[in-house]
């Protein structure tokens, strides 16, 4: 890309890594607490719902309910980890801690920073999603070799939800607004996207809504992999997720520019 095409787009293919590295260094200091925080919620859901509800539900789509649920929890934990990292930690670095302001005085561009934050949030999603995946695999609810397909799908899920949350923080005046995104977007998405029960349980109109939601595409990629089933429409799901990752990146970068560099 020619220098000067846009002073806010990523300057090159590697500048973002400096931002990632800064976040890694900060995370390393609180790694144990951070990992526990990321895992507690999906583990509770997996065992609580999986064993508790599983007794009543019995088998779903020909597998034990907890095995069905495991893929949903892997996708959901990736979504939650990436979203919360972006909403709270990235917002702090962008706004209150002035970390971005310091970085903008170096040779990094705004796009380099946003990209670095996205990759970092996705890294935390990979950590959370893979941990749940591993627990599921140890319990026999996932096929070990399928980790080769599952991890890229988890990573893509992380980028997507970090990217979407980036729009939220680019617009939000303060932390107080994040709760609307959590309650009105994320929680419904868990129930609409086949994470905890099969999509065909939903009325057909809601199934159409679900078919465009990003978490549904993540679940459709991760569940067949974990259960060792052939996955359909991989290209469609990957393309949809890529759109959800890329468009918000450009949109949020443009909004950040208005906010920080007017």
């Amino acid at each position: 890309m020619s220098e000067g095409y846009s002073p806010v787009m990523p300057a090159n293919a590697y500048n973002w890594a400096a931002v990632w590295h800064r976040n890694f260094l900060a995370w390393r200091k609180v790694a144990v607490a951070s990992v526990l925080g990321n895992l507690a919620d999906p583990m509770t859901n997996l065992f609580g719902l999986g064993f508790g509800l599983g007794i009543i539900v019995g088998r779903v789509d020909g597998t034990p309910y907890i095995a069905f649920l495991a893929a949903g929890m892997v996708a959901t934990s990736a979504m939650t980890a990436a979203t919360f990292e972006t909403l709270y930690a990235v917002f702090a670095r962008m706004d209150t801690q002035r970390t971005w302001d310091a970085i903008l005085s170096t040779q990094l561009t705004l796009g380099d920073i946003v990209l670095g934050e996205l990759v970092w949030a996705a890294s935390k999603a990979v950590l959370a999603g893979t941990a749940i995946w591993t627990v599921a695999a140890i319990l026999g609810y996932a096929e070990w070799p399928s980790i080769v397909y599952s991890v890229p799908a988890i990573a893509l899920t992380g980028v997507v939800f970090a990217s979407l949350a980036m729009i939220v923080i680019s617009l939000a005046p303060s932390y107080d607004y994040f709760v609307f995104y959590q309650t009105l977007v994320m929680t419904p998405m868990v129930f609409l996207c086949g994470a905890v029960f099969p999509l065909d349980q939903l009325p057909s109109t809601l199934q159409h809504v679900a078919s465009v939601l990003p978490l549904a595409h993540s679940v459709e990629l991760i569940r067949p992999a974990m259960l060792g089933r052939p996955a359909g429409s991989i290209a469609l799901h990957v393309s949809a997720l890529c759109v959800y990752a890329v468009l918000p990146f450009f949109l949020s970068t443009a909004i950040f520019r208005r906010r920080l560099m007017r």
Binding site: Y14, N15, A17, A18, H21, R22, L25, A102, I103, T106, Q107, L108
Partner: peptide, 9 residues
């Protein structure tokens, strides 16, 4: 210093 130096590659 380490983190900031990285911003200059």
């Amino acid at each position: 210093l380490l983190v900031f130096g990285r911003y200059f590659n």
